[in-house]
């Protein structure tokens, strides 16, 4: 049980992120959930690479056991890519807010639906005349 504790916390964080992404309608809250999900992936990669009694993978003569450097490399790049894509998502949210006046998913869908209905009606009216 205790040997797998970090995995269980990772799964919990992942599912919390997934829940926020699905359940919340606010686009910024969705992005927060997405970044929690992403952070849990960092944990999923880094935790198995740790060796108790080992040290950070910076070679020195007085140490012989090192934690695995490969996950560190993968996640290091993933963090920076993560913030860049988060910013891209936020930029899209800002543009949506400017276009629709709201960033609540339900309100956006309602607005889209209203526009569609209005367009269909005007097309019908044109077809009738």
């Amino acid at each position: 049980m205790l040997e797998h504790f970090s995995y269980f916390i990772t799964v919990f964080l992942m599912m919390a992120g997934l829940f926020i992404v699905i359940a919340r309608g606010n686009l910024i809250k969705k992005l927060i959930g997405l970044s929690i999900f992403q952070t849990s992936v960092y944990l999923l990669y880094i935790a198995p690479g740790k060796l108790v009694g080992g040290t950070a993978p910076i070679l020195a003569t007085q140490f012989s056991t090192y934690s695995n450097p490969l996950p560190h490399v993968l996640i290091l790049t993933a963090i920076v890519v993560g913030v860049a894509t988060l910013a891209l998502g936020l930029a899209i949210a800002v543009r949506i807010r400017e276009a629709y006046g709201t960033i609540e998913e339900d309100e956006i869908l309602t607005l889209d639906h209203t526009v569609e209905v209005a367009e269909a009606q005007s097309a019908e009216a044109r077809g009738g005349s």
Partner: peptide
Amino acid sequence: FGPGGGFQAGT
């Protein structure tokens, strides 16, 4: 020689 590199320094 220590912890660091382009990604860290850039951020």
